[in-house]
């Protein structure tokens, strides 16, 4: 791992100031993604600003929102009673990810901001537009069975590896950010992670000096029937081949509201609005579910290696809808 300087500010302000003053600095919190990035040579920060001890690790709620402090560990969120009672989808997604040890370290914001899953991105000897703009994409035409089928471009077909972000995208979750000077923003998780288009190196909407303070979810969505279904190459401790987050409500036998997102298929958590539209207002019959599943994968552009993901995504979503209804 390349060396770097290190600072541990004890306030958000000083963290932001340090970032503003040091080009090429990076925040580190849980470290579970950042350290592998540095080890792999994907990132080379000159200064690591350790924000792990900032007071941003609480889960709270008010009338409108559930707010998850950016530094809350994945475990702490999953074990939080408010999360469990109001948004079990978040818990289920979190618990399907990584290992207990990693979940004890990884933070809420770090989970969402984790770098793309693509083996070529992590091998600095391979061409990768995301890591090294203009160098090409080794994955296209390479080994791509785990890579993206939706929202990909001819520059990049990486997938986003977070389960938490998939559930958040389904629930219209937002991140609350701050920049030096105090400018605050609210960004939808769904938008925060960018599609690669022609600039896969611009992975997120965050400015380099922007810090996430919390992740918020509107409590109007609390108590929805939900399910998180994930397939992978082994029983556990693996990234999704495909996952689906579903939250819905029924009214007199018809789907009143539906929130659906897919994971493992796209460079960002993939909100499937077409699938939602196919369900809302209808009884959740086999036909309706099948149509929703079909809508979810409209526009897929798979490679030869990952063509199966298109069909699998429809199947996983079918299962998730049924589990949410059960």
């Amino acid at each position: 791992m390349q060396n770097f300087s290190y600072a541990r500010p004890d306030t958000v302000d000083s963290a932001l100031s340090l970032m503003a003053d040091h080009q090429g600095a990076a925040f580190i919190a849980g470290g579970t993604d950042m350290l592998n990035r540095i080890r792999d040579g994907v990132s080379a920060p000159g200064l690591l600003i350790d924000i792990s001890r900032l007071d941003l690790a609480k889960v709270s709620k008010d009338k409108k929102r559930l707010s998850i402090g950016a530094l809350t560990t994945n475990t702490a969120i999953a074990e939080n009673h408010i999360v469990a009672s109001e948004f079990p989808l978040l818990r289920d997604a979190l618990l399907s990810g990584a290992s207990p040890q990693v979940r004890n370290m990884a933070t809420a914001a770090g989970n969402i901001l984790q770098s793309a899953r693509c083996p070529y991105f992590r091998d600095v000897m391979s061409a990768c537009n995301r890591r090294d703009p203009g160098s090409g994409c080794s994955a296209i035409g390479g080994t791509s069975r785990k890579l993206g089928v939706l929202g990909v471009s001819d520059q990049c077909i990486a997938v986003h590896g977070s389960d938490f972000a998939v559930a958040l995208a389904a629930l219209d979750g937002t991140v609350q950010t701050v920049r030096p000077g105090g400018e605050r923003c609210s960004i939808k998780v769904e938008d925060l992670i960018r599609l690669p288009e022609d600039r896969p190196d611009e992975a997120t909407m965050l400015a380099p000096d922007e810090l996430i303070l919390s992740i918020d979810v509107d409590r109007a969505l609390a108590g929805f029937s939900s399910a998180y279904v994930k397939t992978r190459d082994r029983a556990s401790f693996g990234y999704a081949l495909v996952s689906a987050a579903v939250a819905l409500t029924l009214d007199e036998g018809r789907v009143a509201q539906a929130r659906i997102a897919l994971g493992g298929v796209a460079p960002k958590p993939w909100r499937a609005r077409g699938a939602e539209a196919a369900l809302v207002g209808r009884a959740p019959t086999e036909d309706a579910i099948a149509e929703a599943a079909a809508q979810a994968i409209v526009g897929a552009t798979p490679t030869e290696d990952n063509r199966y993901k298109v069909d699998l995504a429809a199947r996983v979503l079918t299962r998730a809808i049924k589990e949410a209804l059960a």
């Binding site: 070529y120 000897m125 035409g141 080994t143 029983a235 401790f237 693996g238």
Partner: peptide, 30 residues
């Protein structure tokens, strides 16, 4: 039977999944 495979890039012959995070071996749950 169910998971292990070393993938080589078909153009460069570089190992693609040379990592515990990309090439799986059984875990307890398997």
């Amino acid at each position: 039977a169910l998971m292990e495979k070393t993938e080589l890039d078909p153009a460069t012959a570089r190992p693609v999944n040379a990592s515990f995070l990309d090439n799986y071996v059984p875990v307890q749950g398997d």
